[in-house]
Design a protein around this nucleic acid. Structure first.
Lengths: 153, 153
DNA sequence: CTGGTTGCAAATACTTTGCAAGATG
DNA sequence: CATCTTGCAAAGTATTTGCAACCAG
């Protein structure tokens, strides 16, 4: 298995911060980059283990933040509140539009919005290093079905 | 205590869907509209009880979705994953920019982004009735402090 | 009266944490 | 060898659900 370019970035990040390069951290990174969709913590754990690594749930949670901080991974919160992760590729940013009813998610790119975001972030003194824009709406299917709904039980 | 305009909207919504107007639902609505900041489920429960209403935690959770669906209330997910709610006023939409590190949140209005969002939603067949845009970034303070960080324990 | 709704408490889901053993630089 | 990390399991925190009693239409 060749060394991913991202793995080098992670190692650099760890070294800069005086943290250690453990096999668990590499396994975690690889598990996320092996998947090309949004996966949650539990799926990441399963993927890492399926890859032949011995790793615990606690270690997954403890290191996900680390990967997000170094910009290799993004944490996306679905409308319902569920947290999922995806790998990032510098220069290929995209944003998310998701349905708050059924959870269906669409990825899109909008240079116009990105430009305006730069303005807004500057105005409010926010760092845009890893901007993340999440829009929640209602997809057509749910908007239509939503007319007649029943109570909870 | 006068009847809120929003209460009428809620009652209409309930009638249209064949749901019932219970004192708990009204109390919940009033509790949220009495606060002019973002509050979580627990605070809403406390506010409703402080208002002299007997209401349970389960009822709060069961009905928050209802209020969000009828467009009177918005659910905002903070970067850390915490869910807070705020009352909405038609025509006075605003969006959220929050720091994924310290949670500091800034509200802003951007006609330009709103216009582009309309385009994007149309293109992806999403309903913009209650658009909600959430941007997560890193505020200057956290970006600066973030340079030297230590490990977890 | 009929069936949506509530309260309670138990259950569930997700994430964090204390601690001793085990790595890494 | 210092101390950063891990695994395990227990502890949190947030939210949901089963069920019987209750109440709105």
């Amino acid at each position: 298995m060749p060394t991913l370019r991202e793995e080098t970035l992670l190692l650099d990040h760890l070294r800069r911060r005086g943290l250690r390069a453990t096999p668990e951290r590499r396994a975690l990174l690889r598990a996320i980059f092996a998947q090309h969709r949004h996966i949650d913590a539990e799926e990441i754990l399963a993927a890492a283990r399926a890859g032949g690594h011995k790793i615990s749930r606690a270690t997954v949670y403890r290191n996900l933040d680390l990967l997000v901080e170094c910009g290799l991974v993004a944490r996306v919160t679905l409308p319902g509140g569920r947290a999922v992760y995806e790998h990032l590729h510098p220069g290929l940013a995209h944003d998310h539009l998701s349905c708050r009813q059924c959870g269906r998610m669409v990825e899109f790119v909008s240079p116009g919005i990105s430009a305006l975001l730069v303005e807004i972030c500057r105005a409010h003194d926010f760092d845009l290093a890893t901007p993340q824009l999440q829009i929640s709406g209602l997809c057509r299917a749910c908007a239509t079905a939503g007319q007649g709904r029943r109570a909870h039980g």
